[in-house]
Design a protein around this nucleic acid. Structure first.
Lengths: 228, 228
DNA sequence: GCAATCTATTTTGTATGCAAAAAAGAAACC
DNA sequence: GGTTTCTTTTTTGCATACAAAATAGATTGC
């Protein structure tokens, strides 16, 4: 191995302007949220760095960033692990998410433009289509997009950012959830009602619906965590 | 300068078990919150590392951590700066803090033990003492402790953690606020009422009081930001 | 065989080295 | 004088080197 050169073998393409550690943050977050790096699994720096094609330095910076978001936990002198999916913690996160989504609902009813609502409606119909076909992955994709758009409509980037961080913790549970048809149908119905409330700009009602929706999601996740 | 040895000059004491980058995170956060590192000031890695007695590596890791908390902003290829105190962002943060504190109030009314309440009452009286003597710094210290204890009583560490991060952004404004006596008196009165509501375990009332209290805080901060 | 201790290996934590980018300063041009 | 271009210096970003800690493996004693 060439030991003189200090330029990495797979140098980032010239088109790519982003910083390496930012790319690593996103890739690592995806690996964790998608479940490819399982909860409580160790993050071996040498192995991961090789996998991501960087040195350990940017990787470690990315790990610190994600630690602040709560996706990884730092063990002094023992590296980092993917944050565990603890039922207790899950409940806590859902409680906070409930407050944040309720706030977002209120703000969205005030601030969403008609174009925003039309966009959400479009995403909603996409979601319905995948629901009737039983395509879970695509369903989740549109579901997530609706929630994202929702947060965007609230017009508070701090709220959106805070929500995104906590949501990442929770999202990981989806990929292990064995969604029953009843629960799924119910969730879709709730989405119907939420859309209706938004159209009517009924913030109070939307808040109630969002809380219920989250409570049901929590129940699903707890079921999934209980049956391993 | 000795160029052979790789052990740092001021080696951490053997009693110290914590990791260097964690110490750096806390020290750096303090420097920022306390205003010693002013908003929008550049974080020169060489200078800061020397000041904190480490190399650039743990410092950079700490900076990434704080970037995720929103206390510093990363400028690609141009390092990091202390996050600006933008009025617009300040409003956003206060809106989210409002939702989080309202939730905490509700939970605290349910979960606080009598001992917790007694402790808050004790802190409250300390705060009153410093208020009548016009000792602003000590007043702020106890004020902060009350809010911390409050969050602790809610019994949701995720909530507490999320709140702490956003609160750090806001706290920096305090040190530039020229608190008028009226506003100060009003804030103290609000604290009186909040304590009363907690004692009565009146969650609904406490939520209203907290929202008002935060709204007044925001008004103070906006005043301070508007008059430089 | 199993526990305990010692040794070797791996892994983490931190410091340092080097290259590219940015900033600051100097020189040339209008 | 002021702007532009070229140099020099500084600073950042990444890779690597080394030490301490932790882990795994071997060895000994029983």
């Amino acid at each position: 191995m060439d030991v003189v050169t200090h330029t990495p073998a797979n140098v980032t393409s010239l088109a790519e302007r982003r910083l390496l550690h930012e790319t690593v943050i996103d890739r690592l977050r995806d690996l964790i949220v998608q479940g490819e790096l399982a909860p409580e699994s160790k993050l071996n720096e040498r192995v991961l760095a090789e996998k991501l094609g960087t040195s350990r330095t940017p990787l470690r910076e990315a790990i610190k960033f994600l630690a602040s978001e709560g996706l990884v936990e730092l063990l002094p002198n023992r590296g980092a692990v993917v944050a565990a999916l603890k039922p207790e913690k899950m409940k806590e996160v859902f409680v906070v998410l409930g407050a944040l989504e309720a706030l977002a609902g209120e703000l969205a009813c005030r601030n969403a433009t008609e174009t925003d609502i039309a966009e959400i409606r479009a995403l909603h119909y996409h979601m319905l289509a995948h629901h009737v076909r039983g395509e879970l992955t695509d369903y989740f994709r549109y579901n997530q997009q609706i929630h994202n758009k929702f947060m965007e409509c609230a017009g508070n980037t701090t709220l959106a950012h805070t929500w995104r961080g906590l949501n990442a913790y929770v999202r990981r549970a989806r990929y292990m959830a064995n969604l029953s048809r009843e629960r799924w149908d119910k969730a879709v119905k709730e989405h119907d009602e939420m859309l209706e409330a938004l159209v009517m700009r009924d913030g109070a009602r939307l808040q109630v619906l969002l809380r219920d929706h989250l409570a049901n999601k929590l129940a699903m996740v707890m079921e999934a965590l209980a049956t391993p």
